[in-house]
Amino acid sequence: MEKQTMNHLSVDDVKQMLLYVGETITASKDYLGQIDAEIGDGDHGTGMATGAEAFMKKLRESEFETINDVFKTTGMEMMKSMGGASGIIFGTMFSDGVKQLESKSSIDHTGLADIFRGSLDSVKKRGKADVGDKTMIDALDPAVQTLESDASKEWTLTEVLKHAEEAAWNGVEETKQITAKHGRAKTLGERTKGYQDAGATSVWLIFKSMREWVEQHEG
């Protein structure tokens, strides 16, 4: 294993990283549930944990040739298992980013930026939502933008992911200022102000746990 600065992720690295993401989501079930309960129906934590358990099981029992397969499998398992709007949306976030991408067995931070750009575009299209609608896009969009703007920098993966994580968190903070326009929270209108969006919080957790995994596996 590479003990120095980590600049590339192998197929197995991506698998291990996503397993760590899954464990973080599962451990955050109650936290996400409580956030959702304020303005939604409180099932976001349970839903995300169901999806995480499904993709972790599939990742553990499968062999992968490409990074594309790891991401695609993760997303498909979420879509198949979760239900609700978040099953499709988070499934799309993992599965669709690699769709237009040539098969890869190693990626650097430019590759990650490409993948999550594809994810973001697909999520926006499928969810018919955009920045400012108080959805997970409010965290994913700024995270992807920093990934893209950092792609040309001579940064380590940890630094790049840390920056994306911060951008996602700022997005989560901004959702507190927004009135919901999508999903069940939409019907609560003004009452949703002051509360952060649960889906955006999940996006932040995903970037945070990817950063943590990479950081722990650097020298």
Partner: peptide, 12 residues
């Protein structure tokens, strides 16, 4: 059927 108050998944 989905879970309680959650849409069924596409597989179902």
């Amino acid at each position: 059927m989905g879970n309680v108050f959650a849409a069924p998944n596409p597989d179902t």
